[in-house]
């Protein structure tokens, strides 16, 4: 699979916090996405401090755009049942 993504890593997403194969960067990125999706008010300066230990401003901005699209349009595709068009 491209860019180092493996099935093993995908399987660990559900319990990413305790994964031994996901990196610290990956765990922080997943946590960022998770919080933005379900409890964005909980994202505080401390969390951004942790993000900055691993990511540059430009990388955080890029990641934020990816998360925005998934939260906004991704949810729409889900409720529009877009996947059923392929059944």
């Amino acid at each position: 699979m491209d860019k180092g993504l493996t099935e093993d890593k995908i399987k660990e997403l559900e319990n990413y916090e305790v994964s031994e194969i996901l990196t610290r960067r990956e765990k922080l990125a997943i946590k960022y996405a998770e919080k933005m999706g379900i409890e964005h008010q909980s994202i505080d300066d401390k969390f951004f401090g942790l993000l900055h230990e691993e990511f540059s401003d430009a990388e955080i901005a890029e990641m934020s755009i990816v998360i925005s699209v998934c939260i906004g349009w991704g949810r729409l595709l889900s409720v529009f049942k877009a996947e059923e068009a392929w059944d």
């Binding site: 933005m36 964005h40 008010q41 994202i43 934020s64 755009i65 998360i67 925005s68 699209v69 998934c70 939260i71 906004g72 349009w73 949810r75 729409l76």
Partner: peptide
């Protein structure tokens, strides 16, 4: 979608 996705970041 834009409000929920992108503008949520502006709140953070």
């Amino acid at each position: 979608a834009v409000g929920i996705g992108f503008e949520r970041f502006l709140a953070v």
